[in-house]
């Protein structure tokens, strides 16, 4: 499984709760929608801003996987926008339903989540996570997972604050 951990390393936690499937009220109302092709450039720029590592082909590939033809979408790719400016991307989240890997029952994996630095602390990350959780739930999943670098304190605090706990698997690796 391919995981994008760089996004988890530098993202700051969200703060105020926000509904996932509808715009929030007030001037800073946030809307969550499925990513469209025109969003990919903004997603790529956001990621490059946060990680300092441009990888536009990678984001386009993830977009294509979401839009895979001939069957159900392979992934879930959502973006957060100001409700009044639906073309401006404040943040994004990408996940996928994977089954039977590592002996696991089918579950939803979140492998990229990032929010523009200037849009943080406004509940954008929380709204994105709630939205993808709802998408997983609608697909019949009762478990959501992600992976965070052990020393990435703020993303770790964010996911913990959203109720994620250590799961039954331990990631192992070896230098080659």
């Amino acid at each position: 499984m391919k995981h994008v951990t760089t996004d988890h390393r530098k993202k700051r936690p969200g703060r105020a709760p926000a509904p996932a499937d509808a715009p929030t009220g007030g001037e800073s109302a946030i809307a969550i929608r499925a990513a469209e092709r025109r969003d990919v450039a903004e997603v790529s720029a956001l990621d490059a801003q946060v990680t300092g590592l441009p990888k536009p082909e990678h984001w386009m590939e993830l977009y294509r996987r979401q839009r895979s033809v001939g069957g159900a979408p392979a992934g879930i790719f959502l973006v957060a926008c100001p409700a009044a400016e639906p073309e401006r991307v404040l943040g994004f989240i990408i996940g996928e339903i994977r089954a039977w890997e590592f002996g696991s029952d089918p579950c939803g994996w979140v492998y990229a989540l990032s929010v523009r630095p200037e849009a943080r602390e406004r509940g954008v990350g929380e709204a994105l996570l709630q939205a993808i959780a709802e998408a997983f739930r609608k697909a019949g999943m009762d478990k959501m997972r992600t992976m965070v670098a052990r020393d990435a304190i703020l993303p770790m605090q964010f996911f913990r604050g959203e109720g994620l706990m250590a799961g039954p698997y331990i990631q192992l690796e070896k230098d080659l």
Partner: peptide, 17 residues
């Protein structure tokens, strides 16, 4: 390292929740 990472990621607000 695992113990420190766990305790360093649980805030008071999270523990209260």
């Amino acid at each position: 390292d695992t113990v420190r990472a766990t305790l360093g990621s649980i805030t008071i607000a999270t523990l209260r929740d």
